[in-house]
Amino acid sequence: MPATEVGDHQNGDDAETSFIQESHKSNLDVSLNFHDYTCEPVPAPSAIRMIETQTCIPTMTIGTQTESVQTFRSISTQTDTCEQRGIGVQAMLPTLVYEDVMDNPSKLNFYTGIPNKGLFNALFDEMGDMQEKPQTRCRKSSGGRPRALRLIDEFFMVLMRLRLGLLVADLAARFCISQAACSRLLNKWIDYLDMKLDFLIMWPSKSAVKFNMPKLFRDKFPDTRVIIDCTEIKTETPSSLQLKSLMYSDYKSHITWKSLVGISPSGHVTFVSDLWVGSISDKKITNNSGIIDLCEEGDSIMADKGFIISDLTTPKGIKLVIPPFKRGHSKFSKREVQQTRDIANARIHVERQMERIKNFRIVQGVMPITMSSRASKVWKLCAKLTNLQPPLVPH
């Protein structure tokens, strides 16, 4: 027999012997030994979230350690009912869950946009009416599949979608569920959170605004009720020619959605409009959004030069604070230069707040046109979550 054939035969015997020797180990160890991980180091078995179950009973085995099911995250197995065959099945856990980041504020803020564990838990406690379905147990009479994720993992997943702008396929892989199930969960949670988190953006009373007014406004603009500005979000080009014309923004040279954002002098978001087509003017979106109707006589609205809305505010006794315009070729007077500087120093906070909103990467880049039905809800959710951040303006 040629040497090459002898060598191949011996190598085959060695592999078979190795498999027999390793058979007493877990499937995970055997899987690692039989794969060629030459591109990168082999991950430690503890880093791979694989749980082996022999049957659908209240215990699970990880290697040699056995613990109660209740101590693990809720998972869905590939069995239909508990009474079925007592054969071995495998179920994958999410690669990242809330417990992995809850004690690290910087990581928690990175993944969810919520600065600390206390705020996250307080916010999740508001989801009391989003109870788990009765299909959480593996019972024949339950009707339908068991819940694939815990409620807190679903909440964590939708926050990751908003904060990091992860694709549905990526989230489905991270949380070990199908793309269809992931999409349904995201849509359900966005609709639910849009209604449930309304309390995070509220129109404050005049007395509350004055009580929390920073020194900068108290000294120079004491009647300021709200600071407003508009921002735009890029989106894909629609197929309709009429929509293309309506949504095209000359300012961005792109198809966009446009929204009006209002903040209090203390820097908190107090008003967010729906998303409008990108071609709408600042004056029209201000009028249509209804923010002027929320102000009272004697209030001041601070805005940029583009908000030529004095004909809307003056009849209601509302003062419009905008930088002065140049008159012909004449220069600004010393008083006008100082006024422009003061307004710019005060108005900059609304742009800082909009930057906070756009730190939620789902509204960065180009949003898919398929999200148009929920785009306003997504935008408002991002704005609501920024109010959980520390104040922008020091008191």
Results as ranks from 00 to 15, higher is better:
Ser281Asp: 00
Ser281His: 12
Ser281Gln: 05
Asp282Val: 08
Asp282Thr: 07
Asp282Ser: 11
Asp282Trp: 12
Lys283Ala: 14
Lys283Met: 06
Lys284Glu: 14
Ile285Val: 15
Ile285Ala: 13
Ile285Lys: 15
Ile285Leu: 14
Thr286Leu: 13
Thr286His: 03
Asn287Val: 08
Asn288Trp: 01
Asn288Val: 02
Asn288Phe: 11
Asn288Tyr: 07
Ser289Ala: 12
Ser289Ile: 03
Ser289Val: 05
Ile291Lys: 12
Ile291Asp: 07
Ile292Val: 15
Asp293Thr: 09
Asp293Ala: 11
Leu294Lys: 14
Leu294Tyr: 10
Leu294Phe: 11
Leu294Ala: 00
Leu294Gln: 13
Cys295Ala: 12
Cys295Pro: 02
Cys295Gln: 09
Glu297His: 03
Glu297Ile: 09
Glu297Phe: 01
Glu297Tyr: 00
Gly298Trp: 00
Gly298Leu: 02
Gly298Pro: 03
Gly298Ser: 00
Ser300Val: 02
Ser300Ile: 09
Ser300Ala: 13
Ser300His: 12
Ser300Gly: 08
Ser300Cys: 13
Ser300Lys: 07
Ile301Met: 04
Ile301Gln: 01
Ile301Phe: 01
Met302Asn: 08
Met302Arg: 03
Ala303Met: 05
Ala303Tyr: 02
Lys305Thr: 11
Lys305Pro: 00
Gly306Pro: 13
Gly306Asp: 06
Phe307Glu: 04
Phe307Gln: 07
Phe307Lys: 09
Ile308His: 04
Ile308Ser: 10
Ile308Ala: 11
Ile309Gly: 08
Ile309Lys: 11
Ile309Cys: 14
Ile309Trp: 01
Ser310Asn: 11
Ser310Phe: 12
Ser310Cys: 07
Ser310Ala: 12
Ser310Asp: 15
Asp311Cys: 06
Asp311Leu: 13
Asp311His: 13
Asp311Met: 07
Leu312Gln: 15
Leu312Asn: 04
Leu312Gly: 14
Thr313Pro: 02
Thr313Phe: 03
Thr313Lys: 02
Thr314His: 07
Thr314Leu: 14
Pro315Asp: 05
Pro315Ile: 02
Pro315Cys: 00
Pro315Glu: 04
Gly317Asp: 03
Gly317Tyr: 00
Gly317Asn: 00
Ile318Tyr: 13
Ile318Cys: 09
Ile318Phe: 07
Ile318Ser: 06
Lys319Trp: 06
Lys319Phe: 09
Lys319Pro: 00
Leu320Met: 09
Val321Pro: 04
Val321Ser: 12
Val321Phe: 07
Val321Ile: 14
Ile322Asn: 01
Ile322Pro: 02
Pro323His: 09
Pro323Phe: 05
Pro323Tyr: 03
Pro323Cys: 11
Pro324Thr: 03
Pro324Gln: 04
Pro324Met: 08
Pro324Ile: 01
Pro324Val: 05
Phe325Tyr: 15
Phe325Met: 08
Phe325Ile: 08
Phe325Arg: 14
Lys326Asp: 03
Lys326Tyr: 10
Arg327Asp: 14
Arg327Ile: 12
Arg327Trp: 10
